[in-house]
Amino acid sequence: MRAYLQVACRILAICATIQGCSKSGGVAHDPKLSTLGTIEVTAKLVDTGGEFPPNDLYDYAHVMKYEVQQTHRGKIEGNVIYVGHYNPLKARNAVADERVKDVGGNVTKFIAGDVHRMALVAPIDEHFMGGIVNKLPESGKGPIYWALWTERAG
């Protein structure tokens, strides 16, 4: 009985992996990835920029560090970029509000090591009007990008 259960769990895990691959294969992405903003990249989240501030009273943009793996659209300098995500404690499909109407995606949690495909625009100050939490002092050297659409990749 236990052996059967183990086999069933493995089959379920394999199915989940296959489904994940099909979504990240490039065909299932939302068209907004290729239309919003001026830049589209696939990048690995290497530093979430510290603990996210609570969002019970106030909503912030939080700056995170990425290593760019592929640039699909637009141009960026170097392979390290800093990206501000709005209200990162919320899933991307539920993050839009009265302040920020044009953000979304399918990422539910921001975890270092995850790979994201993102539609970006820069600089954040010209596109987002709210509190920005930036605990990455090295980000001051280049522009901080504003994430409009964020999907899982890889």
Partner: peptide
């Protein structure tokens, strides 16, 4: 406003 990486 935001000043030097801090809000409020």
């Amino acid at each position: 406003g935001n000043v030097g990486g801090a809000s409020w």
